[in-house]
C-alpha cells in the first residue's frame, strides 16, 4: 500500500456517528455495523475526509506513535470492509489540529470490529423477528 494514496468513503451508503470519540459506522446496503476504538475513530475520520495516510504516520497517541505498519493494516481492513475506496486524483487534505489533539488523547490501538450478525436479515427480511429465526427468513432471489 502506498501511504501517499488518498481515500474517501466508499459509497453514500456508508454512514457514521461518533459517541464520546468512538465511531460507529453502518453500511446501509449490507446492514453491517462497525465499531471503532478511539484511535481507530480518529484515523477513520481523517482518512475518510481525505487525509493522506502518510500524514498520519508518526502521529502521537497515549499508547505511542501511529506506525506505518499499523496504519497499513488498518487501511487494509477499511478497504476490505468496503468502507473506504481509493480517491484517485484527489488532493490530500491537511490533518486538522482538532484531530491531532483527539489522537493525542486516544489510548486504545487502532481497531475496527465488525458486527454483522443481523446483516442478512437486513438484506432479506426486514420485518423478521430476529430473536429466534426458526427457519425464517427463506432466502429467495428470484431469477
Amino acid at each position: 500500500m502506498r501511504q501517499s494514496d488518498v481515500y474517501a468513503i466508499a459509497s453514500k451508503d456508508i454512514v457514521f456517528e461518533s459517541f464520546d470519540g468512538e465511531a460507529v459506522v453502518l453500511d446501509l446496503a449490507t446492514g453491517k455495523y462497525f465499531g471503532f476504538t478511539d484511535t481507530g475513530s480518529c484515523l477513520w475520520e481523517a482518512l475518510s475526509s481525505g487525509v493522506s495516510p502518510e500524514d498520519l504516520v508518526g502521529a502521537a497517541t497515549r499508547s505511542g506513535q501511529v506506525s506505518a505498519a499499523d496504519l497499513d493494516a488498518f487501511v487494509a481492513r477499511l478497504l476490505e470492509f468496503g468502507l473506504l475506496a481509493p480517491a484517485a486524483g484527489q488532493a490530500a487534505q491537511p490533518l486538522s489540529q482538532s484531530l491531532v489533539a483527539q489522537l493525542a488523547n486516544a489510548a486504545e490501538p487502532a481497531q475496527v470490529d465488525i458486527h454483522d450478525d443481523l446483516a442478512d436479515l437486513i438484506l432479506v427480511d426486514p420485518i423478521h423477528e430476529v430473536e429466534e429465526p426458526q427457519g425464517w427468513p427463506a432466502v429467495k432471489q428470484a431469477s
Binding site: L118, P126, H128, V130
Partner: peptide, 9 residues
C-alpha cells in the same frame, strides 16, 4: 440500533 433498524423496513 441493529435489531430496531433490521426489523423495521
Amino acid at each position: 440500533a441493529p435489531s430496531g433498524i433490521a426489523q423495521m423496513p
